[in-house]
Every structure is written in C-alpha cells, then in structure tokens.
Design a protein around this nucleic acid. Structure first.
Length: 425
RNA sequence: CGGGGUGUCGUAUACCGGUAGUACGCAUGGUUUGGGACCAUGUCGACUGGGUUCGAUUCCCAGCACCCCGACCA
C-alpha cells in the first residue's frame, strides 16, 4: 500500500483523554479512533493487525478441532432469562424495542450456542463438539478504562465445547490450554496459565492467561522454577514461599494483564437450556461444557503495552500491519528525486511480487525527519530506505525496528531473506 | 455505583470578569531534505443550560462528556 493513499495520518500529540500507552500510541499512529468511552473503531492499519491476531487464533482453534460459526449479535431475552443471566449478570445490555419487546446483545454466548449444539448433538457419538466465533462483544461496564484494554464493545474469540464425559473434557481442557499458550507465543508475548477463581461462571478453578506488564490490572504469584502461576486473589501461599508444585522455586509477585480465560462450566448451561444426549446405554445425560475466551482487541492492546519504546510501537512480525516500511528519501533536485522514486517504485513492485506486505512511503516531498519519526511510531518490523545515498552505494538500508540494527542489502532476494528469516516459509 | 479531576481552534496548550494568544495541523507561496526543519500569508475555537454581573470563556449551580482511584469484572 502506498502511504500517500492511506487516509489516516499520524499525530504528534496524543489526545489528552488517553493516558494509557496502548491508547496513546494506537491513536497517534492512526490505528484506532475513539467513539466514546470504551468504544473504538479500527482504522486500516488497526484492522490489519486485528485480522492477523484473529488468524493466529483461528488457526489454533481449527487445529484443536474447533468449528467456526458466526452467532447473531442481537439476542432474544428468553434464553438469558432461563439461565438467570438476565437478572444476575450486571454487564448484560438490555434493549427495549418500540413494541416493548426485550433484546440483548452478545457479551458471552452460552445462551445462544448451547441450543445450537443441542439441536445437532443427540448422541454420545456426536460429541465432543467444539464451536467458536470471533466477533464483537458488548458489556455494560460501569467503568471503561485503559484504552482498548477494557471496553464496552470489544473483539473476542469465544469457543464452547461439549463433552460426553468429564474425562474427555479434562483432556480437551489441557489441549486448549496448550493451544492458548502457542497463540500468545506467536503474538510475541510470554503468557502464563494462571489459576484463578471461576467467577459467577463456575465454582471450579479457571485458568487465566497472564502477561507480565506494568500496565497489568491483576497481581499474580509465579514460580521461578516451574510453570506454576496463581492469581493472588485465590492463592493459599505468599510471596517468597517455596512453590508447592515443584518444591524447588520460590513464588514471585508481578503485575499482569489477562489475555484469555478458560472455564469448566460443568452441566450448568446444558441443564438450564435443556441440552441432553443419549449415552451408550441409551440414557439421557447432560454434556460437560467448557468456555474458552480470548479478547482479541485486548490482546492487541497488551502487545502494544508490552512491546513499544519511547519512539512508538514495536510490532512482532506476526501481527504487524505490514512486513516492511519502504521509505523513499530525496532532496529537491528533480532529477535525483525522479531516480530515487523510480528505484523505490521498482522495489515496491518486486517486493510485493515476492509476497512481502509493503507500506510504501512515497511522499517524497515531505521532510525526512517527519517521515522517519512516523515510521518509528507505526512500528513496522523492518524499514527499507531508498535515497540518493543508498543509490550511490548500490544497496538499500534495512533497519530492524526492534533493535535499530542497520545493514545494507542490495537485492530483493536478500531483503526477503532477511525479513522472513525462514519464519514464514 | 462511591470518591476525585478536567472540559478553550482538528490536536496539544496559554492567559483572562472587559480585543482569546501560541505550537502543530490544514491552505497558498518560497527555502529546505537522514530524525516531527524554516520564512511569509491565510484558515479554524471557549461542552450545554441556568444564575450572579453593566459585562462571563473566566465566578456559582445543574446537566452532559471524558479521565483517574476504588468497587465490579463471564
């Protein structure tokens, strides 16, 4: 994409009503646009990032047997009344139509997905079933905060699984946990599966996936030796205690942000919504249900919080809006400018053909400082500068955003090799 | 929902009970071109409603919006 064509622009100052790093950087760089407290629109660059995150999530869900669907956003109130959520869950939006009919919008979808699954899964042979969707969620939060980290409308992947036995559920729970950890790794984050309370969902322990960051809103204890991690809220141990899991490490306290949560829902929703199947003996049984959520927009926010510097965002390659930022720089000399532009155009085409997603800053009349500062702010993993200097050298300047390392490369093949490093092919 | 704070050009800000100033942006022209460069000219503004006052953007009250702390957090 040519930057002269991109309708968004960067801003030198962050809006004064955005305090958190994720909102400041994403707003300044033109990834998001605030509509009201806790509600953001995703602009071209932001949507590209979000789609990449969604694709990573989608791939892992498909891998463990998930089947993607899209549930309605507007819901009838009846199933919500059946499960009690209509009156017991305070973040449920309640909408009245002009004919006084009551509706709600999705904030979690047990009430909708359970009847769908129940309509088809009549026998133990039809189970397990894993269904997920990626889409918008709406929650009537009393206080939206922290930019895109806690909104009233946000993106979420929610998967629901139905099992004929507890054992089958338990096995899948572990499989899903591993898939979750792979998702965060691919997003450039180190997440910890953390024991937490089940909330109003479940009396059992749930797992929250936590990324250690100063922006974190939760406190966790994690073991210095094994993978044990627990939310301070429910921990029976204290900081510096020896870990009871491995008896080797000690527990350290840290601030962390939640980027996912998985629950064992038992038969609560199947019972409330009358989902039964026939077991091997022909008897009616309620399936064991699980719920697996990842806030995709929140994940985007946490990535920015965890991976940015004083100049701007530093996207991991896997979720960056583009692979490469091509910047053409030249003085006013028309002849030289034409040479630089021609070379940059040529590279843009060749890189595009080689499968590289390129944002091409072709605004050659703009001052260099502005454009390089913008480049850093946008946070694309690699920057390729074409200028009079590099033309003389017969090579282009390739800079890694994260490390600021610069090297000169002379061919498209070498550029492609450097930026993909075999990670994508 | 409890507590606190803030509302001034598109953005960030200044001052002020009596012409609302600056920077960035935007427009035009010119000088620049490896780190948000410079000059000139132009463009654009007091959240809403009451009250006090000769006069309110400024003081007071209410509403609304936004932010922060807490509570809450499927």
């Amino acid at each position: 994409m040519k930057q002269s064509h991109l309708f968004t622009k960067t801003q030198k100052f962050a809006p004064k009503d955005e305090i958190t790093k994720n909102a400041q950087l994403l707003s300044r760089a033109g990834y998001i646009h605030k509509e009201m407290a806790g509600v953001y629109s995703y602009l071209p660059l932001g949507l590209r990032v979000l789609k990449k995150i969604e694709d990573i999530v989608r791939h892992e869900m498909d891998n463990i047997g998930g089947q993607e669907i899209r549930m309605a956003t507007l819901h009838p109130s009846e199933p919500w009344k059946k499960t009690g959520a209509w009156n017991n869950v305070d973040v449920v939006f309640k909408i009245n139509s002009r004919t006084e009919k009551e509706y709600t919008v999705g904030q979690s979808e047990e009430e909708i997905v359970t009847p769908i699954a129940g309509e088809y899964a009549k026998s133990y042979k039809d189970l397990p079933v894993m269904i997920y969707q990626i889409g918008q969620k709406y929650r009537d939060e009393l206080r939206a905060k922290s930019g895109i980290m806690r909104g009233r409308e946000f993106g979420m992947k929610d998967m629901y699984s139905f099992h004929s036995t507890q054992e089958d559920f338990d096995n899948f729970y572990e499989v899903a946990k591993d898939a979750y950890l792979r998702i965060y790794t691919q997003c450039g984050l180190e997440a910890k599966a953390t024991e937490a309370a089940g909330g109003s969902f479940s009396e059992k322990i749930s797992y929250e996936f936590m990324v250690i960051t100063d922006a974190g809103e939760d406190d966790i204890f994690y073991c210095t030796s094994c993978s044990y991690c627990v939310n301070v809220e429910i921990s029976k141990q204290n900081e510096a205690d020896t870990c009871t899991r491995c008896n080797k490490g000690t527990l350290k306290r840290a601030k962390a942000s939640e980027v996912g949560n998985i629950f064992d829902l038992g038969t609560k929703y199947a019972k409330a919504l009358s989902f039964q199947f026939k077991d091997t003996e022909g008897k009616n049984q309620y399936p064991i249900m699980g719920c697996f959520g990842i806030g995709t927009t929140r994940l985007m926010g946490v990535i920015v919080e965890a991976l940015s510097d004083d100049k701007g965002i530093v996207w991991p390659a896997s979720v960056a809006p583009f692979d490469l930022h091509l910047v053409a720089i030249s003085g006013k000399d028309k002849e030289k400018q034409a040479l630089v532009s021609a070379k940059a155009d040529e590279l843009y085409t060749a890189l595009h053909k080689a499968g590289v997603e390129v944002l091409y800053d072709d605004r050659i009349d703009l001052s260099t400082g502005v454009r390089l500062a913008e480049s850093d702010l946008l946070g694309i993993p690699y920057r390729l500068v074409v200028s009079e200097k590099t033309l003389e050298k017969g090579a282009f300047e390739l800079t890694t955003r994260a490390t600021k390392d610069t090297e000169y490369v002379s061919t498209v093949q070498l550029i492609v090799g450097k930026i993909f490093k075999g990670s994508r092919y």
